[in-house]
Simulated assay, not measured.
Amino acid sequence: MSHTVDGYLNKVKKEVKHSGDQDLKYYGFFVQEVEGYLAEKPKATMQEVEEYFGTPKNVLDDYLETQQGKALRNKFLRCKKLSYVLRAALVVLLAIIAILIAVRVTDGLIFSHGQYNRVVYEGTPPPDTESYVEIY
């Protein structure tokens, strides 16, 4: 197969996401169909292959329409939503970690370079012989 058609198949593979045995079987059949098409037209470009079979999104939609019920389509939609939620959570977590590291580094620099001012209260300490309760 040509390099450009491999790119097309990789895009289809990403759309299908191999979440089960049926998906692997479908992808295998689809690859065989593409290879058969390329055997008939060995000089086909990626645009010709995409015109014949459709875009990767259309290939996935055709596959989901052939499946029984809406359960499989819902499974794909849930996986897609879950991946978006996990990506967003990961981004938020990385942002929090970056902020905490920045605060830690800044605090360490301020302390180690003498800019940390500790307030020392001036005054005469009470004599050791008197108790603190009696003084106040």
Score class of each variant (00 low, 15 high):
residue 1 M to L: 12
residue 2 S to E: 12
residue 2 S to V: 11
residue 3 H to Q: 13
residue 4 T to G: 05
residue 4 T to S: 14
residue 5 V to E: 07
residue 6 D to F: 03
residue 7 G to I: 13
residue 9 L to I: 03
residue 13 K to L: 07
residue 15 E to W: 06
residue 16 V to G: 08
residue 18 H to P: 04
residue 18 H to R: 10
residue 20 G to T: 02
residue 21 D to R: 15
residue 22 Q to N: 15
residue 22 Q to I: 09
residue 25 K to S: 12
residue 26 Y to C: 01
residue 27 Y to N: 03
residue 29 F to V: 07
residue 30 F to K: 07
residue 30 F to M: 04
residue 33 E to V: 00
residue 34 V to T: 09
residue 36 G to S: 11
residue 36 G to C: 10
residue 36 G to H: 12
residue 36 G to F: 10
residue 36 G to N: 13
residue 39 A to N: 11
residue 40 E to M: 10
residue 40 E to G: 13
residue 40 E to F: 11
residue 40 E to D: 12
residue 41 K to N: 14
residue 41 K to R: 13
residue 42 P to Q: 03
residue 44 A to Y: 05
residue 44 A to H: 09
residue 47 Q to K: 09
residue 49 V to E: 09
residue 50 E to Q: 13
residue 52 Y to M: 07
residue 52 Y to Q: 12
residue 52 Y to K: 12
residue 52 Y to C: 08
residue 53 F to G: 03
residue 54 G to D: 06
residue 56 P to G: 04
residue 56 P to R: 07
residue 57 K to P: 11
residue 58 N to T: 15
residue 58 N to I: 15
residue 59 V to F: 04
residue 60 L to P: 13
residue 60 L to R: 07
residue 61 D to F: 14
residue 63 Y to M: 02
residue 63 Y to S: 02
residue 64 L to F: 08
residue 64 L to P: 02
residue 66 T to N: 06
residue 67 Q to Y: 02
residue 67 Q to L: 08
residue 68 Q to G: 14
residue 70 K to R: 12
residue 71 A to Y: 14
residue 74 N to Y: 11
residue 76 F to T: 08
residue 77 L to K: 15
residue 77 L to N: 14
residue 78 R to W: 11
residue 78 R to G: 11
residue 78 R to C: 11
residue 81 K to D: 09
residue 81 K to G: 06
residue 81 K to P: 04
residue 83 S to T: 00
residue 84 Y to E: 12
residue 85 V to H: 07
residue 87 R to S: 02
residue 88 A to G: 02
residue 89 A to V: 03
residue 89 A to H: 01
residue 90 L to G: 15
residue 91 V to A: 04
residue 91 V to Y: 00
residue 92 V to G: 02
residue 93 L to M: 04
residue 93 L to G: 11
residue 94 L to Y: 05
residue 94 L to M: 05
residue 95 A to R: 06
residue 96 I to N: 05
residue 96 I to V: 10
residue 97 I to Q: 08
residue 98 A to P: 06
residue 99 I to P: 00
residue 99 I to C: 04
residue 100 L to G: 14
residue 101 I to M: 09
residue 102 A to M: 07
residue 104 R to M: 05
residue 105 V to G: 03
residue 105 V to F: 02
residue 105 V to A: 02
residue 106 T to H: 02
residue 106 T to F: 00
residue 110 I to M: 02
residue 111 F to M: 09
residue 111 F to Y: 08
residue 111 F to N: 08
residue 112 S to P: 13
residue 112 S to I: 02
residue 113 H to G: 05
residue 114 G to Y: 00
residue 115 Q to K: 11
residue 115 Q to L: 12
residue 116 Y to E: 10
residue 116 Y to K: 01
residue 116 Y to S: 01
residue 117 N to D: 15
residue 118 R to E: 13
residue 119 V to Q: 06
residue 119 V to T: 08
residue 120 V to P: 02
residue 121 Y to T: 01
residue 121 Y to D: 00
residue 122 E to C: 03
residue 123 G to Y: 04
residue 123 G to I: 00
residue 123 G to A: 01
residue 124 T to W: 05
residue 125 P to I: 03
residue 127 P to T: 03
residue 127 P to K: 07
residue 128 D to L: 13
residue 129 T to V: 00
residue 129 T to F: 09
residue 129 T to N: 12
residue 130 E to I: 15
residue 130 E to Q: 10
residue 134 E to C: 08
residue 134 E to N: 13
residue 135 I to M: 06
residue 135 I to T: 10
residue 135 I to Y: 08
residue 135 I to V: 12
